[in-house]
Design a protein around this nucleic acid. Structure first.
Lengths: 199, 199
DNA sequence: TGAAATACTGTATATAATTACAGTATGAAC
DNA sequence: GTTCATACTGTAATTATATACAGTATTTCA
């Protein structure tokens, strides 16, 4: 998908806000009025550009026939992570679900938790944790780490150039102490929320 | 708000599905075509009825100018419950948020948990629990009980005509043993899910 | 440096859409 | 037993809307 110019992004944002505010997309005239265009064709041209770049679909002959093609506010749920594959690789995506209704930080994906290593902080087997992948990992945060292709959820209690300590929140598990220069360690993100389904 | 006739509900549902499928509301002609009306005025009449009953708004002179007036898929979050007031009374509603993305059962409201009495089952202070108020309360379910105006979340471990036992999932709390004939006991619902926001 | 993309103005027109008015028929409410 | 709400048919007019064509000016990229 191509990138939008500043002006095109403004138009695209206007369309999105119209849809969320009014409940329906704008007409060419409404776009023109908002941006001060003297001709509806200016809006038409922008819509064609947005369509060409794949950001919207246009139904011809249909009033307000604009739909956003990039509707994916749905967030992937990651089940088991295959060795060697990136977190968000298609083979790892169990399904897609809408965003967490609460959450101060953005959620990039949900990860289904396996095992009981974090029960002391209320993260149970089969829970979904909401993960933000761009937040800087910080001490005392619950992080999603990948150690030599093994994905694990733990509390980060120490991080320096040659030592990383990951703590399981369960007395039955030992701390994981790693020299990041010797093993392959990646942080896949920080846990920012949790969803549990009870039956 | 008035109630809808079966036919009006069909029309209303069609409008909702059009909005979610196509991204914009239908025209009178599209409604008529779908239902087999031979006149667009049949749709017009229905829209007026829906407007009169408060289910939609209509912007005159605007193509597809239909908007849904009640975003009733948003679910109330209940904070502190005032003594004597029904659970869902307005004064108890903190805010409204979209439905839990997962959940096998319907969610009638979210309740903000106060205290640590359920930490052994992973329910922590400030968590939101998703509550279904119509499920029959069952042994071993986590229930929301109201005992003489005091709302509490506990595991129901015994229920009979003259004895109800509610268990806190934390060693520091004793079981609550109640004779339902002597105190005012109501079950407000069953916990069907959980949301936690982490910062 | 020259073509293509961007960002518009200006005009025009076919058609999409709203919506009023005039009816018909049926069942519920008072 | 008549009024009101529901649920439509049928017609028609005004206006809302999409969208083509012909331009101009500027910027981007190869």
């Amino acid at each position: 998908m191509n990138t939008l110019t500043n002006r095109q992004k403004e138009i695209f944002d206007f369309i999105k806000s119209k849809i969320s505010d009014e409940g329906y997309p704008p007409t060419r005239m409404e776009i023109s009025k908002f941006f001060g265009f003297k001709s509806p064709n200016a809006a038409e041209d922008h819509l064609k550009a947005l369509k060409k770049k794949g950001f919207i679909n246009i139904l011809s002959g249909t009033s307000r026939g604009i739909s956003l093609s990039d509707d994916d506010d749905n967030i992937p749920v990651i089940g088991l992570v295959s060795a060697g594959s990136p977190m968000l690789a298609e083979e790892n995506v169990e399904k897609k679900i809408p965003a967490l209704p609460i959450s101060s930080h953005g959620v990039d994906f949900y990860l289904r938790v396996r095992g009981d290593s974090m029960i002391n902080v209320g993260i149970f087997d089969n829970d979904l944790i909401a993960v933000n992948k761009d937040l800087k990992v910080k001490k005392n945060a619950i992080v999603i780490a990948r150690i030599d292709d093994e994905v694990t959820v733990k509390t980060l209690i120490e991080i320096s150039n040659n030592k990383v300590v990951l703590k399981a929140e369960n007395e039955n598990y030992d701390d994981i102490v790693i020299n990041p220069n010797k093993v392959n360690l990646n942080f896949e993100g920080t846990c920012v929320g949790l969803i549990r389904n009870m039956n």
